[in-house]
């Protein structure tokens, strides 16, 4: 992909983000932060590539360990972020209808 098509995806995604986030109810702003934190750990993709890269080149050994470290950090975020969001969302309940 060339730079301009990547930029187009980015710019359009910013607009999508703008409208989607404004529609989030203020009561759920804390879960919003927790879940955005979890999904921003998609950076694990880069960490996995670094960790799986074939060794041999200068610096690739260090790069591999940096990648593995980043995999651990991002996994903490992914699992922790989604789990804590799930825990919070399960607490929100409506008033029980009384007859």
């Amino acid at each position: 992909m060339d730079f301009v098509s990547i930029l187009s995806i980015f710019v359009l995604a910013c607009f999508v983000g703008y409208y989607v986030v404004w529609s989030v109810t203020p009561a759920l702003h804390t879960p919003l932060m927790a879940v955005t934190n979890a999904i921003s750990s998609v950076i694990i993709v880069g960490a996995l590539i670094a960790a799986a890269a074939s060794s041999g080149a200068t610096g690739s050994g260090v790069a591999k360990w940096l990648g593995l470290g980043a995999v651990v950090l991002a996994s903490i975020n992914i699992f922790g972020g989604f789990a804590v969001t799930q825990r919070m969302l399960a607490m929100y309940r409506k008033k029980e209808k009384r007859s």
């Binding site: 979890a38 950076i43 694990i44 670094a50 610096g59 690739s60 790069a63 940096l66 950090l73």
Partner: peptide, 23 residues
């Protein structure tokens, strides 16, 4: 959690700098 994302990003960027061919 934010600090972890930040540190992971730094680690990935450093890895990409050290081993650009893999990326």
């Amino acid at each position: 959690f934010h600090s972890l994302v930040g540190l992971a990003a730094v680690a990935v960027a450093c890895a990409a700098f050290l081993n650009p061919v893999a990326f």
